[in-house]
Amino acid sequence: MAMTLPAPPVSSAARSRGEAGSGGSDFTPLARRVRASGLLARRPGYYARAIGVNLVATVALWCAVAWAGAGWWTVLLGVPLAMVATRTAFLGHDAGHRQIARSARVNRVLGLLLGNLLLGMGHGWWSDKHNRHHANPNHVGKDPDVGEGILAWTEEQAGRQRGVLRWVARHQAALFFPLLTLEGVNLKVGSLMFLRGRSRRDQLVEGGLLLAHTVGYLTLAFSLLPVGQALVLIALQHAMFGVHLGAVFAPNHKGMAMPAPGERWDHLRRQVLTSRNVRGGVVTDWLMGGLNYQIEHHLFPSVPRCNLRKVRPLVRAHCAQLGVPYAESGLVGSYRLALGHMRAVGEPLR
Rank of each mutant, 00 (worst) to 15 (best):
G255V: 00
S127R: 15
P8D: 05
L287F: 15
A239T: 12
H318R: 06
S12P: 09
L218P: 13
V34L: 05
L233Q: 14
H297G: 00
G92R: 02
R276K: 10
T154A: 02
G71N: 02
V75D: 11
P251Q: 08
V303A: 15
G69P: 02
G184Q: 00
A174I: 04
V205P: 08
D266R: 03
L113E: 04
A152T: 05
G323D: 02
L210A: 02
H123N: 04
S12D: 15
T86S: 12
T274Q: 03
R43T: 14
M193D: 11
V278K: 07
A212I: 11
G120H: 05
H213G: 12
N116E: 05
A85F: 04
P325V: 15
R98C: 11
S103P: 12
W153G: 01
G197W: 01
V315W: 01
D94N: 03
A260K: 11
A250Y: 05
A101K: 08
E328C: 00
K142A: 15
A2F: 09
P226A: 12
V189D: 00
R350T: 13
R87E: 13
Q321P: 03
L349F: 12
G78D: 11
R32F: 06
W62T: 09
M288F: 11
G92Q: 04
G290C: 04
R350D: 04
N252Q: 15
L30K: 04
R49L: 15
Q321W: 03
K129A: 08
S37V: 09
L81T: 14
G330W: 07
V56K: 00
E183K: 08
G184V: 00
G96D: 10
V272D: 01
S334C: 06
V185L: 14
V248N: 08
L231T: 07
L117E: 06
V10N: 13
I51M: 02
P178S: 04
G242M: 02
E156H: 12
G18C: 14
V232L: 15
E155R: 15
C306I: 15
S103I: 09
G24M: 02
V315M: 00
L113P: 02
Y293S: 01
S103L: 14
L61I: 15
D128R: 14
N136V: 12
F90R: 11
C319Y: 03
A101M: 12
R166Q: 11
T274F: 00
V164K: 10
R170G: 12
A68S: 13
F249D: 06
P301D: 07
A344I: 13
G255L: 03
E296V: 07
F177I: 04
H253V: 11
A247M: 15
T274D: 04
A104G: 14
D285G: 05
G216E: 12
L224R: 07
R196V: 06
L231Y: 09
V34N: 03
D145M: 00
G52D: 08
Q161I: 04
T58G: 00
W125I: 09
D26R: 06
L236Q: 01
L40W: 01
G323C: 08
N138C: 12
H93C: 05
S199N: 05
T86Y: 13
H93I: 11
P44H: 13
E19V: 01
F27Q: 10
E296G: 10
L210S: 13
L337N: 13
F222V: 10
L331E: 10
P251V: 01
G281D: 03
S302I: 14
L113H: 09
